[in-house]
Simulated assay, not measured.
Amino acid sequence: MACTDTATVKRIVRFQHASDYRHFLQQLPAIEPSSSPRKKIRQMPIIRAVSCRLPADETLERFGGRIWIEKDCKISVHHGSQVHKSAMVDRGIPWGVNQIKAPQAWSTTTGLRVKVGVIDTGVDFSHPDLRQSLSRGINLLNRSMLPHDDNGHGTHIAGTIAAANQPQGMIGVAPRALISPVKAFDHNGSAFVSDIILGIEWCIRNRMDVINMSFGMKTKSKALLGAVINAYNAGVIIVASSGNDGKRRSVDYPARYPQTISVGATNKLRRIAPFSNRGIYIDVYAPGDKIVSSWIRGKYNEMSGTSMATSHVSGAIALLLAHRPGLTPAEIKTIIKRSVQPLRGRRARRTVGELDVMRMMQVVDKT
C-alpha cells in the first residue's frame, strides 16, 4: 500500500544521537497540540525514534541535532485471493509442504524449539492444529489482551509454519517450532509502520530466531530499514513476501531490503504464480497458490498469495536451525539460494528457483 495520505500528521521522528532523542522525549509534551485528545506517543528505542502526531508544519528544528521525519505510513498484509472453506479439503500434509520436501526431513528435524515471530493479525489460540505450537506473543494494538486474530491471515500463516495435529487436522512445515504471534495488524489487515517496528523490536528482545513478514508497501521507509538492519545484526532472520502485483522488476518493502529473504510464489506446476512479483529482487520462490491452512474459529481456508509462500520459507528455516543452530542470516540466505529446485517455464531465470528442504539439508551438511 502506498503512503499517500497527505492529511495525516502521524509521524516517525528519528534522531542521530541518543542525547537528542532523550532531550526530545523530555520536551515532547510541550509541542503536542493541546486541542487534541490524549495522544499516543510510541517510543522506538531500537531506532532512536518516536511515533507521534505533530502539526503538519512542524519541523522540530528548535531541538537541534540531526533529525529525520517521515510519515508513519499504513502498511497492509499481502492478502491474495481467498476461498473460505469450513471443512478441511486435503487433510494431513498440504501440497505445498510436500512440494518443498519438508516431510522427508522430519526424521532429521522438526524445527524443535526454534522461535518464529509472526508479525501479522494475531492467531486463533483455540485452533486444534495450533495449540501445541504457540507461545503467548504480544498484542501491540492492546497490550492487555492476547494477540487474538480477528482477520484470519495470521492464523493461516501460523498453520503453514507449524501446525501439528496429525492425523485429525493438518501439519505444517516445522511442526515442533514455536510461534510467537505479534499482533500489529487490525481486523482489516492494516498497520502503521511504527507498529511493525515495535514488533521487530519485541522479536529481537525476546530472542526470536526467525521473523515472518507477510506484508508490504510500495514506499521505502528509512525507519523500517533501520529496524530490519538491527534485527539482521542481532542474528534474526527476516523472511518477507514480495507482493501480489504480478510485477516483473519490482517487489514491495521490506522484502526489497537486502537484509531480508524475499519470497515469490509458485503453483503446483513449479511455475511462478501469475500474481507473484518476480525478478532480480527475489531470493527464493515457494508454494503460494491455493494453499489450505488453519483459519479463525477452528476452521480452514484456501488462500493464494506471496504471504503463503513466505510462511513455507519461514518453516523451512526453522527446520534448518533446529538441525544446525547458530547459522547467521547471511549464511541461511546463501544456503537457500544454493539449494533451490529449478522453476518450470520458458521465462524462468536459472539463477533463482523453488525452495527445497532436502537440498538445504544436504548443502548445510557439506559445510
Rank of each mutant, 00 (worst) to 15 (best):
T260S: 03
T260K: 01
A255G: 08
P254R: 10
Y253V: 00
G235I: 03
P254I: 03
G246M: 11
P254K: 07
T260H: 02
V251P: 05
D252A: 10
R248Y: 11
R249T: 13
I238N: 04
S250P: 00
A240H: 03
I237A: 02
G243N: 07
V236I: 13
A240M: 07
S241E: 07
D245K: 15
A240C: 15
D252L: 14
V239N: 09
Q259T: 04
Y257I: 13
V236R: 04
I261A: 05
A234S: 15
S250L: 11
A234Y: 00
G246S: 11
S241Q: 07
N233L: 11
D245W: 04
Y257S: 08
A255T: 04
I237Q: 06
Y257K: 02
V236E: 00
Y257G: 05
S242M: 09
G243L: 03
R248G: 14
I237C: 04
K247M: 14
R248P: 10
Q259G: 01
S241P: 07
G246I: 02
V239I: 15
P258N: 06
Y253T: 01
P254Y: 12
G243D: 04
V251S: 09
Y253L: 03
V239L: 08
K247L: 15
T260Y: 00
S250F: 13
V239D: 05
G246W: 09
R249S: 13
Y257F: 15
P254S: 06
D252W: 10
R256N: 10
D245I: 11
G246L: 11
Y253M: 02
R256H: 14
D245N: 15
Y257L: 14
R256E: 12
P254C: 03
R249W: 07
S250G: 04
G235A: 04
S242E: 01
V251W: 03
P254D: 08
V251G: 08
T260I: 08
Y253S: 03
R256T: 08
Q259E: 12
D245H: 13
P254L: 09
A240Q: 05
S241M: 00
Y253K: 01
G235F: 01
V236H: 03
S250R: 12
I238Q: 10
V251H: 05
R248S: 15
K247D: 12
N244R: 05
A240T: 07
Q259I: 05
R256L: 13
R256W: 13
A240G: 08
Q259C: 02
G243R: 08
A234T: 02
N233S: 07
G235Q: 05
I238H: 01
G243K: 10
R256Q: 11
R256S: 13
A240I: 06
R249D: 14
D245Y: 14
A255W: 07
I237G: 00
G243E: 04
N244E: 04
V239R: 07
D245L: 12
G235R: 00
A255N: 10
K247G: 06
A234N: 01
R248W: 13
S242Q: 09
G246D: 03
Y257N: 06
V251R: 06
I261K: 01
V239C: 11
G246N: 10
A240K: 01
G235E: 00
V236M: 06
